[in-house]
Design a protein around this nucleic acid. Sequence first.
DNA 1: CTGAAAGCGCTAACAT
DNA 2: ATGTTAGCGCTTTCAG
Lengths: 337, 337
Amino acid sequence: MATIADVAKRAGLSRATVSRVLNNHPNVTEDKKRLVREAMEALNYVPNTTAQRLRNQKTDTIAILVPVLTNPFFAYLLEAMDMVATQNHLQLLICQTRYSKQKELDFLELLRTKQVDGLILTSYENEWKKIEPYAELGPMVLCNEYERQTKVPVVRMDQVEASYIGTRHLIEQGHERIACTNGDKSNLGKDRQAGYRRALEEYDLPIHQEWVFSNVYDIEDGKRTLRTIMNMKDRPTAVFTGSDQVAAGMIMAAKALGKKVPDDIAIIGFDDQPIARVVEPALTTIRQPIEEMGKTAMDVMIDAIAHKNQDSHLEILLPFDLVIRDSTMSKLKSISK
Amino acid sequence: MATIADVAKRAGLSRATVSRVLNNHPNVTEDKKRLVREAMEALNYVPNTTAQRLRNQKTDTIAILVPVLTNPFFAYLLEAMDMVATQNHLQLLICQTRYSKQKELDFLELLRTKQVDGLILTSYENEWKKIEPYAELGPMVLCNEYERQTKVPVVRMDQVEASYIGTRHLIEQGHERIACTNGDKSNLGKDRQAGYRRALEEYDLPIHQEWVFSNVYDIEDGKRTLRTIMNMKDRPTAVFTGSDQVAAGMIMAAKALGKKVPDDIAIIGFDDQPIARVVEPALTTIRQPIEEMGKTAMDVMIDAIAHKNQDSHLEILLPFDLVIRDSTMSKLKSISK
DNA sequence: CTGAAAGCGCTAACAT
DNA sequence: ATGTTAGCGCTTTCAG
């Protein structure tokens, strides 16, 4: 491969001058510029990115940590971030932690080894106090998942409020016995439960501890949990799930048991993923502002890289929507409206 | 940040020695090793990856070009590649072309600018003759999408055979009037049509040109196409689609029209994506060996990087499965079996 | 406006 | 076994 020295020699100029035209420095005569351009053309020259990075002490690359790519929520979030990144000539290094604490820590090291200029966390496995120190090594932004007591900027949706609204919707449909499924014990999970509880308390409805299911993540978990619910003697008539996947699994399992949704059991999802429109009945769900969240997080990151001095705790809360479809509204009721 | 020089100074040794322990060279006494380790610890030292890359002339990074992350097919393919890459201490640079010729060419430049050690294409937009020259700049592997006349190694599924088997399955269910939907005009698309035609020809069934639909990609396209089909006076009784998304859209549209699948119209998908099990009736489909394809492609790449001299055209054909579910088998028929 | 030279952080001959 | 030194390819003072 041709290097800058080759170009310089062929153009009969110094490497410095070649570098100047490469970086559009003002002080180069048109004549020399042309000479350099011709030489570059002739040699098929392209600057070596690694060398530029070493010299410039920056990589124009942002690491994004996600648990898995195959979860559509994260795929769409990445897509949004990618739009903004591309526009700003930034590369994304997409890092899958696969829910592993160790892999997460390994990826955080990217900041220390100077492989990336910044890092966005969309979810995390380790305790926050293990993660926070890495923020000293370079700009870090939290997107989606969050932490309250921190100086790291946060872009997220109000999960408590969203879950409150979702649960209230079930109550407004006349349900008084409402179950709840949850993924992990992250702040997101806790918030969703908090919103669920707030709604029940507000309407003086009982919270049955055995109606709160944890570690419920995917379609299979949803199927299993629905069967458990259906086997209870004292059983709920509605479920607030923390995930469209889980809700979809529940609908499938309910059908297999010959139960009607929403008449035998109403189900509400979370995220508004494509699957929500595909299942039958279509899912009522909380639409997360994924695109806006991803774009905003990247904007904040770009800002952080520019004025590296940002210090005070920035928190951006994005609005959500309750999308009402058929899994909570019986056909009869909708018609009677 | 501490550099290797800082460590050397603190340990009272030379940078060379520090570098040696860093790279586990044999010729270092335990004593000095310990000294170096202590110094590294004390200074919180981590080698600068960019500097190593410049010096070693390799990046341990592979670029993977995909159209979009939000298509589950590519998300799962990436997941599989990531497994193998991680095990081999390779990073993946995931590049979304968004179906843009220009972005694709920009990403191919990664090979020239030495930002990656190799590049895997899972799909491509430009004419092959525009892409092939980049293979001179570094190892390149084709995975999924392919090209016949090339020295670039290929890992793929036999699309002609898969489509033939899928279409034959419809014929075996008694269908004689079979439509076909297709995405683009890539080799994949052409192959799928070829398989469809082969099956019809073999059974002496007519191919109606108006039953072959092109540019049909997603759920919405599927819905639209199904409505078109249902409006035909002379209409097919089965559809071979090139995509589970399209097939799912068709099922949804059929239901909305009050039509029964498979009795009014049988539908077969392609890929066996999660959506295939979620729609009702569940989709009969062609299961692509995504995981194996991704892993194998990465293996081939790792091989290509190791023995850089590989020359002859390698083509690996992976087996597929016909997964029979309910969208092609009427309940009556299955029972009568 | 242009060039010489130092150096980003690391590794690998080569020498001792 | 360890150190010295010369780069990898690029950018940027500093001189001229």
